[in-house]
Amino acid sequence: MKTVSLLASALLASASFMAFAQQSVDKTLDVSAGTRVYLNNERGELEVITHDKDQVRLVGTLDKRAEDLIFELRGNGVRIEVRTPEQNGWSYNDEDGSELTLYMPESSPLKVEGVSMDVNASDLSGGTDITLVSGDIKLTNASQNVLLKTVSGDIDASQLAGEVVLETVSGDIKDVENNANRAKYQAVSGDLEVRSNALRRFELQNVSGDVRMKLPTIDDGQVKNVSGDVELHLGLSDTATLDASSVSGDLLFRFSDDVNASFNLKANAGGDIINELTADKAEESRWGTASSLQFSAGSGAAQVKVSTVSGSIEIKRD
């Protein structure tokens, strides 16, 4: 009899845990303007929607493995954390993860961290910081400081403004209708596509992926590339500086406006320099393993310095 009652207790405890693990959530907090929102969730999906109310609201279902949900106002921020047991390894099943929708004021800064989670957010004007280990990020219409980082996932961004940093390892980056003044892109093992009519300063770091950027007239550009092909469409202001270095990859620059720049191009280890802007031709070094080309186009005001090892440099008018 005693054994039977023990078994029954265990079954009840198990059932109550399962009920909690699959439970729905709908919590709301009143906040003041500019309240920061921090959300941490291990796996699943998150959608962020902004509204006109001074409230933060979390709706959805929690991870099946969730042990606790923290949803509280702490200092000048709302902390939301779905707590799960610590687990080593990558044996996640996203279908068992949290399905959450976060409603928050448009002007509130947002910070999101997750392990295996997809995030879809839009209309954030207070700054956005999303860092994932494995998962895709989709962000539309965000301004101020935007930092999107995913180790193994894609970034799909549009209508970003302010200062933008997009980083991925083993994923593609797409950033279109970019209205930012300054942006930094870092991609490893993934392709990068950028289209902007506003970008004045950019930094590109690429490993083992192909890059295509269509930019307006810029003031400053820094490019570092390994084992990938880079194609840049851009104009140069009279004070512009463009520095590019590449190893085992081709660099193609297509200039959209009349170019007023001094060029210093250098190709090592058998790389080629193809100049279609002027009639100047590259000269081979004494040892025959390198070539270089210095010339001015127009007033020569802007500075372009490009170096490659085992890859080609091609410059032409768009």
Partner: peptide
Amino acid sequence: AKQQLLLSMQEN
């Protein structure tokens, strides 16, 4: 890439 860079620096 690092090896290519070093080799090129050694040569040039």
